[in-house]
Design a protein around this nucleic acid. Structure first.
Length: 280
DNA sequence: GGACAGGGTTACG
DNA sequence: CGTAACCCTGTC
């Protein structure tokens, strides 16, 4: 196969890694299949553009070994043995056994903190396709313009400073609804140091969650999402409408946190995925 | 075609 | 402390 443009590619062997499931898992909103090419995905994260493809003997990434080691390896949580998580599920926990089997290949990503914060403020009372549209619109309007390996334009996620300087009017074109106000206010709080945003990475899960909830438009659920999908506190357990349904139906006596101490959030993600895509 | 709900949160009472 | 209202779209 002839490639139009020359660019670095590396092939990595990773167990329990499924691009489609990761892209559909609802934790990231800028990873999508590339139109013309089946099973090939493009992702924009940490300001960078990455293409990915599953092959029979590994997964191809459009980056150098150095970039992989420095950024993407960690982004995809490659230091963790997910097989160990599957095996750790209680044999009597039938729902979770099915959920994990359905969602095997999902990874919990390490996403950029500001992007995750704004994206999950947008996510409230919203559905995934429209969240993606809102995020894309925000990026193409206010993000830095860059060029990818195909020499196509793409946009980084806007900086806090850029969003903080906007007005409600500026955001009207992004169709964010009442969330516009939350985004402006929270961005300004971050820029003006009203919350210790830079210090979040060094806080414990509980500290980070409390600090995040000071932001406007960030309640318990959104804070848990940021803790899990950006700060990688895998004990964080976001409860949304899907998880609420699951808890009511399959865990009427409460979720067995004691069995899954320290990583309930990962299992939450399998349950979320299974509730949306399972048994179709 | 209008009504309704979609990964909640805020701001009232 | 419970709950209506918040904005915008895609779907029925």
């Amino acid at each position: 196969m002839e490639r139009k443009y020359r660019y670095e590619m590396i092939k990595v062997q990773i167990n329990d890694f499924d691009l489609e499931k990761i892209s559909k898992s609802g934790q990231c909103f800028r990873m999508n299949p590339i139109m013309e090419q089946e099973k090939k995905y493009a992702l924009i994260a940490h300001g960078e553009y990455l293409e990915m493809e599953e092959t029979t003997d590994g997964i191809c990434f459009s980056c150098t070994q150095e970039e992989w080691d420095k950024l993407w390896k960690n982004y995809f949580d490659c230091g963790r043995d997910y097989r160990k998580i599957y095996r750790s599920v209680d044999k009597t926990d039938e729902y979770m056994l099915r959920a994990v089997s359905c969602g095997s290949g999902i990874r919990i990503l390490r996403q950029e903190i500001f992007e995750t914060t704004i994206s999950f403020i947008i996510s409230q009372q919203n559905n995934i396709p429209r969240i993606k549209k809102c995020v894309q619109s925000l990026c193409s309007s206010f993000g830095e313009e860059k060029y990818n390996i195909r020499r196509e334009k793409y946009y980084a996620f806007p900086t806090p400073e850029r969003l903080a300087g906007l007005t409600l009017e500026d955001l009207q074109g992004c169709n964010l609804g009442y969330r516009s106000r939350y985004i402006l206010k929270s961005s300004r709080m971050i820029v003006e140091g009203e919350i210790d945003f830079a210090g979040l990475a060094d806080m414990t899960y509980e500290e980070a969650r409390a600090e995040l909830m000071k932001l406007c438009g960030v309640g318990i659920k959104v804070a848990e999402c940021i803790c899990l999908f950006a700060l990688h506190h895998v004990e964080a357990f976001p409860v949304d409408t899907h998880i609420k349904t699951v808890l009511l139906k399959y865990y009427p006596d409460g979720f067995p946190f004691e069995k899954y101490e320290g990583y309930a959030g990962i299992l939450q993600q399998y349950a979320f995925y299974y509730d949306i895509y399972g048994e179709m």
